[in-house]
Design a protein around this nucleic acid. Structure first.
Lengths: 120, 120
DNA sequence: GCCGTACTACGATGCCTATCGTACGAGTCG
DNA sequence: CGACTCGTACGATAGGCATCGTAGTACGGC
C-alpha cells in the first residue's frame, strides 16, 4: 500500500518540537568531532537526504546510531525511515527560525577551521 | 614594585594561543548553562573586566573556579590576576579572527532563547 | 517463507565532568 | 605580624557519555 516511492514507513521517531530545541543542546551536539562532521556533510547538500550508512565514519555502527540519535534528540537533524534505510536531513528551517544566522556561522567556522588545519 | 595600579601580578595563567583554539572546544565550553551565562554576562560589557566573584552563580566557589578554567583553556576568555582578584574578559579579538561572526551569532542565539523562555 | 541489509537495543567499559568540601597559597589592609 | 578576602588544589562522588560487541527487529527481494 506504499503510496509513493519516497514515502516514510509507519515507524516514526521522536523529535523535539521546534520550541523545545535548546541552544545548549545544539552546542553540545556539535561539540563532538564526529557529529560536527556529520552535520557538515549534511549541510553540503542541504536539499538531499542521506542514509546513515552513507557516512563512512571511523566508528562502529552502534556508535554511529548513538551519534545520530544525539543529533536528532537535540533538534539538529530530522530522521525518517524509508524502507530499511533511515534518511537524515538538517532541520535548517527550525534552526534558522529559532537562531537566525547561527547555523551558517557554525558551518562557516567549521569550514574555516578545516581549511586552516588542512583537515578536510 | 607594582608598576601601576592595574598591573597584573607575577602569577600568570596558561592560555591557548590563538591558533590552538578549537571550535569543538569552544562549543563544548558554551554548552554548559553556567558557562554560557558567564559568557553572556561578560559580553554585556565587552570592554570591562570582571572578577570571578562578580558573578553570583548558584554553585560553590570550587565549581566556579572549575568553570572559569574550562572557559580559559578552551580559549573563550582571558584571565589575569590583579592583586587577589582574577579578572576575566572575553577573547573577542581572537575569536572574531578565527571564526568571524560566530561569537555574535552565539550571543544573539542565547539572547533570543532567553527572551523566548523568559529566563533572563 | 527465507535471507540479506539497515539499523536498534542492551550491557559493559573506561573516561570525562559537574559538583561539593576542606585545606591551602597569594595579596591587601590594619 | 595577623586577620581577612579571593581564588586554587586535591580528593571524593555521582552521573554522563563515547565506544564497543552481540543479539535482535524491521523491511525488501527472491
Amino acid at each position: 500500500m506504499t503510496p509513493a516511492a519516497t514515502a516514510p514507513s509507519s515507524r516514526d521517531l521522536p523529535h523535539p518540537a521546534r520550541e523545545e530545541i535548546r541552544l545548549e543542546g545544539v552546542l553540545h551536539a556539535l561539540s563532538d568531532p564526529m557529529r560536527l562532521r556529520i552535520v557538515r556533510d549534511l549541510a553540503a547538500d542541504s536539499d538531499e537526504l542521506f542514509s546513515c550508512s552513507y557516512f563512512d565514519l571511523p566508528v562502529t555502527k552502534s556508535t554511529t546510531t548513538h551519534h545520530f540519535r544525539v543529533l536528532r534528540e537535540s533538534g539538529v537533524i530530522r530522521q525518517t525511515y524509508r524502507g530499511t534505510a533511515k534518511m537524515n536531513g538538517l532541520r535548517r528551517d527550525d534552526l534558522d527560525d529559532l537562531f537566525p544566522g547561527l547555523l551558517d556561522a557554525l558551518l562557516a567556522a567549521a569550514d574555516r577551521q578545516s581549511a586552516r588545519l588542512g583537515t578536510g
